[in-house]
Amino acid sequence: MLQVFQLLVNGVMAGAILAVPAIGFNIVFAVLQISNFSIAALIAVGAYAGYTANVLLGLPPLLAILAAFLISGAAGVASDRLALRPLRGYGAIAVAIASLALNMVLENIVRFIFGNDVRSLDVPMMRDWIFEGIHVGPQAVFNFLVAIAAMVALFSLLSFTTVGRAMRAVADNPTLANIKGIDPEKMARLAVFLGMGMAGIAGVLLALDTAVDPTIGMRVVLSVFAAAVLGGLGSIPGAVVGGLLIGLAEQLSTLVVPVAYSSAIGFAAIILALLLFPRGILGDR
């Protein structure tokens, strides 16, 4: 029983981290109706931005996270402008495929600059806190709180600010929004910036918890996609629910299936879930 509780705790912690880039993926999808698969490379860009800020410039983790948000966001906007926007008129799948090529380009820019070596951020290693036999890591708690804070900040932005409401209007109905005088292109840029910025934050959180190498984004991205799809493409609350469910499924599955299969389990679960909810759990599109 203790083990189940431990896995539940681990699953929620891991799920919250997964939810951050999943939200990023979905916010881009909501406004542009495009799956931008280069989010994997932007997770890596964020992780290395955080590494540069934290290790090379000596900044504390919170500033490294902020730096990663800004740099991944900016890199996302720039790469979208150069590579993907010219293709938007030719169908969502064409853009999605191009974003796979873009992912290759971005990941290799990172590799060109930093090499393949595995690096760690400069944070103290702390032992877990143990409550009634349940292990909880201080770093994991910090990361969890940052993930929650990032999500709350994003929700507030979308719910309570003019620009956030404008963005949601574009997501709901671009034509109508245009009539109301909202520039859809500006909103698209903002969505990409926020979405890829979230990916950058996730990159640093993963780096803090684990280590950095150019494939860091590729290592998690399938779980991120799974979370985004399960919750419903384009749905931000859906991404949170999806992230948590995937995090929990991957952990709890280890009770019954050998650990080596856990990455497959997540996806097998999705395929089953989508048989029941073809638009994801909270998807409406």
Binding site: Q33, F225, V229, L233, F267, L274
Partner: peptide
Amino acid sequence: DYLAIVTLG
């Protein structure tokens, strides 16, 4: 869009 990601998985 769902098909793309599910088949990837």
